[in-house]
Structure formats: structure tokens, C-alpha cells
Amino acid sequence: MEPTPAPSDIVVAMQGVVTRFGAHVVHDGVNLEVRRSEIYAIVGGSGSGKSTLLREMILLHRPDSGSIRVLGVDLAGLDDEAALALRQRFGVLFQHGGLFGSLSVLENVGLPLREHTRLDGALIDELALLRLEMAGLAPDVGAQFPSELSGGMMKRASLARALVLDPELLFLDEPTAGLDPQSADGVDDLVRRLRDQSRLTIVMITHDLDLLWQVADRVAVLADGRVQGVGSMAELHRSANQAVRRFFDGPRGRAAEEQQDRLVRARDGAGREVASRPR
């Protein structure tokens, strides 16, 4: 159907990944491929193993069997040095930010530079400030501590930190969960802008249907330990697979879809990009 991409264009590849916690099988042969410069979303019900899958991609958890390649590197049998090198090539936005409470926001953002480069402190602060502002935060936020930030600000600051080394690949765990609609809009604008500005590949986990319809290029539906379907939202929408259907057929699924239809019509009618979407 689609042309198979060249191997060098596959950024993340999982093959036959099996994960068990005791007797509980979470993944039972997951296969997926993320291509360069796309926004790839993973969706699925609560407890379907999305976070675990992400943890496996970012070297925080080892699958019981199966192979995972990230940025062309096989994760099995990676030594410490290779793991460190690989870790510097991707950024992760954790669900709760993962900002260090003992450091100010600016220090948090500058930390990877301080640890992994030999740049001087003043330049690092300048770069961290630049990143903060590119993530849409006011400069005075830099002096604050993570405990003083709102949820949306925390996500932005943590995104700034994830991006400070210009990674090739960005992982987002529930980037809009727990945010008010306006902040959520801000975050998806940010994600879209990121992808447009650089050739960044983004893998995200989300429950946010709006984010899926408007931002994701391809979506994988995870259920019963396997990927049940992959494709754009429109393609998945036509799928006959039960697990995929369940995802669309709730009232929220329909509302988001109608919203999308309206937006498309408005965009075609007015001939301009609709920047923010009412909910």
C-alpha cells in the first residue's frame, strides 16, 4: 500500500516485544516502526502498556524478549558508554515533568549542557533562557523552582530541558494530560512548531483525541498486548478492528471528530490556518 521506507529512515523499530510482570503479560509481541520526522502517537486503554512501551524505548526497562532499535542502535546488550551516547540523542518529557526540585527552572533546563558539554556557565544560562522562551515561558520563570509552577508551565519547562541538546528524537508521555484546554492547545501548537522547525521525530503517548486528530501523523492503537492498527486518524477511523473502533465510538471520540470536520471546513472556507481551536 505505502512505499516501504529505507532502513535509515526508521527511527524506532520494535519487533516481537514481549513484556511480563510476574504472570501478567503486558505486551505479547508488539511490532511497530516510527519513521524519521513524523509525529507518531501511541494510544490505548488504561493499563494497556503504553507507558511501559515508552520506558522500554528509553532504556528504563528491558523487555522479556523481542528486539528494539532506537536511532539505528540495538538496545539489547548495549554497554554503559553506548547507552549514554544514545541517551543524549533523544529527549523525554515525563508525565509529571521530572524536574529536579532542588534546582531552579533555569538550572534544570541548563543541566544537560552543564553535564555533557564544556560550555561556560554564562553561555549555558543564555542558552537555557533561549530554550525557555522558545517553549513559551516568560524569562522570570527561570528563577522559580519547579514546585512554584503550574502544570502547564511545568510541562513547558520540562520540554525545554528535553530539547536543550537538540535531540533527533523526542518522547512525550501524555503531554496534555492534566492541562486546561488552553494550555493543552499551547502544548500542541508547540509540538507542531517543533516538528516544522527541525526534522525532529516525535513519539507520544496520549489520550487527547484533539491532539491526535490535529497533530499526529500516524497513530498506533495498543490493545491486548499488541498493536491493533496503525495509520492516520482518518485511516483508523475506517478500520473494522474491534479494539480500534472502541476508541472512536465513545461520545468523546465522536465530538472530537465533528470538531475536526468543522475545522477542516473552516480552514477550507477561510483559506487560512486555524491556530487555536475552541472546545
Binding site: 558539554t117 560550555l119 553561555l123 543564555e126 542558552l127 533561549l130 522558545m134 536543550v164 541538546l165 537538540d166
Partner: peptide, 11 residues
């Protein structure tokens, strides 16, 4: 060229 490099260059 990454963001840090671009920053130094533009400065």
C-alpha cells in the same frame, strides 16, 4: 548546527 551553535553565531 544546533540551537546552541545558532545562538553563538547570531550573538
Amino acid at each position: 548546527l544546533d540551537t546552541a551553535g545558532a545562538w553563538v553565531l547570531q550573538s
